[in-house]
Amino acid sequence: MRGRTTKLSLLALAMLSASGCSLVQPVQPWEKGMLSRPEMTFETDRLDAAYTEHVYFSKEAASGGSGAGGGGCGCN
C-alpha cells in the first residue's frame, strides 16, 4: 500500500511535470506581480511554521510533508 502510494505520487509528479509546459499556458514575467507577494509563495513565517509543525509532530502520529526534516528532534 505504501509502495503504491509512493508510485502513484511519483506518477502524478511526472505527469504534472510533463504537462507543465503543454497544458498550462505559460505565464510571462510581466504577469508575475501577484505571484511575487510573500503570501503567494510557499515560504511562510519560518519560526511560526517550526513551532506549529512541532506541536503537531508531538501530538499526532503523522508528520512531515513539506520537505526533508533536518534533524535536531528528539521525538519518536
Binding site: 535536531g72 528528539g74 521525538c75 519518536n76
Partner: peptide, 18 residues
Amino acid sequence: RAILAAALSMPILETARA
C-alpha cells in the same frame, strides 16, 4: 519530555526555498 520538549523547533528544511 520525549513527546513534547524535544519535539519543538526541529528545523524544517523546506523544499520550497527562495
